[in-house]
């Protein structure tokens, strides 16, 4: 079962994402900030990371940089959850090494479509 790491400081978003992905048969690991996510990614190899950008402690951009520096996560797809208005965040995320993005607000179907696109 493919493992997805869902990172968001908002519990409701995390729950929504986790519920949707679990329903589609993915194994979901949750983290509330970049630091937690990094720790979890180090102990468990995940197949995809889905991360919010604005988070306390360590934000999504820093998380991507840290992950890409790990040999295990060089090529792992990392998607950023951004908002429509944050165009420069997308670019910042990309140059940090993010694979792509998903624009908030999104609904469960859009989320699954994007994940499927990446995971095949």
């Amino acid at each position: 079962m493919p493992k997805i790491l869902a990172v968001d400081d908002s519990a409701s978003m995390r729950q929504m994402v986790a519920f949707t992905l679990k329903g589609a048969g993915y194994d979901v690991i949750e983290a509330a900030d970049g630091k937690q996510a990094l720790d979890k990614a180090k102990t468990t190899q995940v197949d995809l990371v889905l991360s919010d950008v604005n988070m306390p402690v360590m934000d999504g951009i820093a998380l991507v940089k840290e992950l890409r520096a790990l040999p295990n996560y060089k090529f792992t797809p990392i998607l950023m959850l951004t908002t429509e208005s944050a165009g420069d965040k997308k670019m910042e995320g990309k140059s940090a090494g993010a694979t792509g993005w998903l624009v908030k607000p999104f609904n469960p179907d859009q989320l699954l479509a994007t994940i499927k696109k990446v995971m095949g």
């Binding site: 400081d9 908002s10 409701s12 978003m13 929504m16 919010d52 604005n54 988070m55 306390p56 959850l81 908002t83 908030k104 607000p105 999104f106 609904n107």
Partner: peptide, 14 residues
């Protein structure tokens, strides 16, 4: 900002 941002994101999603 983060608090406002989360509220915006969540309310849009839900």
């Amino acid at each position: 900002f983060r608090a406002a941002h989360s509220i915006k994101g969540g309310s849009g999603t839900f």
